Simulated assay, not measured.
Amino acid sequence: MTDLPLPRRFAEHLGRDRRRSAHTIRAYEATAIRLLAFLQRHWGGPVAQDALAKVSAADLRAYLSVRRDEGLSNTSAARELSAIRAFLKFAGGDDAQLPRLRGPKVKKSLPRPIAPHEAVALAEWASDEAREPWIAARDWAVLLLLYGAGLRIGEAVALTGAALPLGATLRVTGKRDKTRDVPLLPEVRVAIEAYVAACPWGIARDLPLFRGAKGGPLPPGAIRKAVRSARASLGLSDRTTPHALRHSFATHLLGRGADLRALQELLGHASLSSTQVYTAVDAAHLLDVYRAAHPRA
């Protein structure tokens, strides 16, 4: 393991300890390789691992300047900066001493359902910014649960250890104490199980499944704060909230032909009229796609 290049060890850490997607691992490893190559030219010699603690904000600005000259967009530059912070921290940097560099301004997108890759990017970014690995695993699991199962944030944080062991479905208690069973995608189940394995607090049947930093119940505000930071860095709309992940779950299912009554059950809506709003949302999204793709639209 120690004979492997530092970027490769970083990639293995992302996969083994942080449960990152294959796409994120490839992108972050590529960023680490580019940064080391740049620093070798910039500093005029080989870059040892302990030397990375000396990387300054000026060094990072110079690196990003080169990358921007190569055509890197604002959104990609912000994501690359996040990868650099994760790499420097892995290399042994003190989080409090890491160079603080404001990310580039990004153009706000119009409010719309979050695309699947945006939902994953949001969860990954929020997780990458977490203070501790187990909190990163928690945030990743919660956000995937909101998008992959359509839960309200209050429903997610109200889950207890009684949900374990996880199966093909998850029993959720919603508004007015109504319960429903929602399908649990394998990716979501793996994320929750990884969090449970990493959580330093005991998971008991009558205690919250998702815990706060000090071991108490996870406050919804902690997830909302993580999402606010992630959406600003990724250039997503201010309407990209934890609840928007639930909206996107519904819109994407409807766009793939889901029955309104089945969707009503999955979302835990008391009235079908609450579910019917997604027909208008989905139609508006399809019209946006049509206008963007049709040359005479």
Rank of each mutant, 00 (worst) to 15 (best):
T2S: 10
P5F: 05
L6Q: 09
P7T: 13
R9C: 06
R16W: 12
D17E: 14
T31I: 06
A37I: 08
L39R: 00
G44I: 05
A51P: 04
A51Y: 10
A53N: 07
K54C: 11
R61M: 11
Y63A: 11
L64G: 05
S65A: 15
V66L: 14
R68D: 03
R68E: 13
D69A: 14
A77S: 03
S82V: 07
I84Q: 08
R85D: 06
R85I: 00
F90Q: 05
A91N: 02
A91I: 03
D94V: 01
A96Q: 09
P99M: 12
P99T: 12
L101E: 03
R102D: 15
V106Y: 03
S109Q: 15
P113K: 05
V120T: 14
L122F: 02
L122V: 07
A123V: 09
A123D: 05
S127R: 00
S127P: 02
W134A: 10
W134G: 10
L145A: 08
I153D: 01
I153P: 01
E155H: 03
A156D: 10
L166V: 09
L166C: 12
G167N: 07
A168E: 13
L170G: 06
R171V: 13
T173M: 12
V182M: 01
P183M: 11
P183V: 13
L184E: 08
E187Y: 15
V188L: 02
I192A: 01
I192F: 00
Y195D: 04
Y195P: 12
P200M: 10
I203K: 02
I203N: 04
R205G: 11
L207I: 03
P208W: 00
K214G: 08
K214I: 03
P220D: 05
I223V: 14
A232Q: 08
L234S: 08
G235F: 14
S237K: 09
T241F: 03
H252R: 08
G255V: 09
A258G: 13
D259C: 04
A262K: 06
L263M: 02
Q264C: 08
L266C: 04
L267T: 00
S271E: 15
L272G: 06
A280H: 15
A284V: 09
A284F: 07
D288N: 10
D288L: 09
Y290W: 12
Y290F: 15
A297N: 02
